[in-house]
Design a protein around this nucleic acid. Structure first.
Lengths: 247, 247
DNA sequence: TGTTCTGTTTGATCTGAATCAAGGAAACCC
DNA sequence: GGGTTTCCTTGATTCAGATCAAACAGAACA
């Protein structure tokens, strides 16, 4: 209901990653002008569905602000999150007809969109776009595989700690702060966390309480989390203990 | 111990996907000649490690024959398979220094390799290579996400059925047979299956026995599997029930 | 022809997370 | 300010799959 018009200051376009990261870095300005003309913005309210799995998808986009999730659902309702899209992440697959998963706005989201057909044509003309997208897709693949280890082999406790560590690290990077003490708001509800981690929301809640009881995290309300000692949290994740600093 | 020399009939090169799928389809013959000169073959014995996680990876490759697995291992030994490489699958990430996972030959494997540096240079000159790789990577990402649903939400029984269905379907496609009745040899040991599915090998064995008891599969020895009715097997996977016939 | 592997099956028991079931607490809304 | 809704926590119980333990089957080999 809330989209297709761009009430967005063009200056925001500076954050648009398709322009910035996929194209701008290496393309000449003619191509850039092309992209400029093609793009349009859409915004989505928290909870709104961007695309349903199986729908034909006639655009590609990148997240400008907000967070969106990719989910797969089984016939009986069991649900698994399979991707979390943060600002600058790319949505949609050039060369593919149908969406493979549901895409839903977690909070209010703005996306920078391009019609698929012309974008694909542009991709043929400007090799750097394909190369940049390949890079981004490889990163996503790495993340997905990390996630598979989590889903297949980690305990509930380790899963929660891993998720908190991921968010804390991202938050620290975003705000250019060190990882020593981190404070942030969880972008996900308990249920979304459970969909992410392959758990029930009760188990998520219990494990959060446990970590709180042990002083590994401090909770103000349900959402605001303080991690007093990042390394202690990392010890619980089961990951290699370099603190993840050598990304 | 067993590599770096090509005792392989050049005609096998017809199966080499880098040539065939990434390049050949759309590139002029000069580029092809380039690729021809660059490539070399390596073969690996069953169980041999192709690359260790963290090693610097100075080549990219594609599987010509055999099957290789990607695995991640936690400090305490818990292991999760995160990828299964079949003939024509691509190994390695242009633009990345280190290998992110262990790559191991499941059975005897031949790979068609290219030194990374010149391959990357070639990628810049020939846009279709990057585009083809992007397509392949997107496919892998889709597979990984399907796999995440399996790991996070499926029961042991559904996991086993899903794995068997995947292999049966691939086998049928390969031999151009219909899916009605399928016979094939499992390429994986019970332990490898458990690594794939996030289970213990005992549970894998038990569930295999259960499917056998119920007549959903017939086992000759441990490896040879007959699926008398593919649709009945699909009913157990928990997947949407189109029988997977639409791609 | 036994001997030793390696891979597999099966049984008994345990346990971590799911399920079932109440309540609490913050946000929203007349 | 009370009522509704949505989200979260906590407790009691159950159960699927892990763990521990033993035995079996086929292949390799001497």
């Amino acid at each position: 209901m809330a989209n297709l018009a761009p009430p967005i200051d063009m200056r925001n376009c500076g954050d648009c990653p398709i322009r910035h990261r996929a194209v701008c870095a290496r393309c000449d300005s003619d191509e850039l002008a092309h992209l400029e003309q093609m793009k349009y913005y859409r915004s989505f309210q928290a909870g709104q569905t961007v695309i349903w799995s199986g729908d034909r998808m006639d655009f590609v986009a990148s997240v400008v602000t907000g967070i969106a999730k990719l989910t797969q659902t089984m016939e009986d309702g069991r649900r698994q999150m399979v991707g979390l899209l943060l600002p600058s992440d790319f949505v949609g697959r050039p060369g593919r007809q149908q969406a493979a998963y549901d895409v839903t706005a977690v909070n209010d989201v703005v996306m920078c969109c391009f019609r698929k057909k012309p974008f694909e044509e542009l991709m043929v003309r400007t090799p750097h776009v394909a190369q940049r997208l390949l890079e981004m897709t490889l990163d996503e693949l790495d993340a997905a595989r990390e996630w598979m280890l989590l889903l297949g082999r980690k305990t509930a406790r380790e899963k929660i700690a891993s998720l908190l560590a991921i968010i804390a690290r991202r938050e620290a990077t975003l705000k250019q702060r060190s990882l020593g003490v981190t404070v942030f708001d969880l972008p996900l509800t308990r249920e979304e966390m459970s969909d992410y981690l392959g758990l029930t929301l009760e188990t998520v809640s219990r494990q959060m309480s446990a970590l709180k009881r042990e002083g590994l995290i401090v909770l103000e309300g349900n959402r605001r989390v303080t991690v007093p000692d990042f390394n202690k949290l990392m010890d619980v994740t089961g990951d290699d203990s370099d603190g993840g600093m050598l990304s």
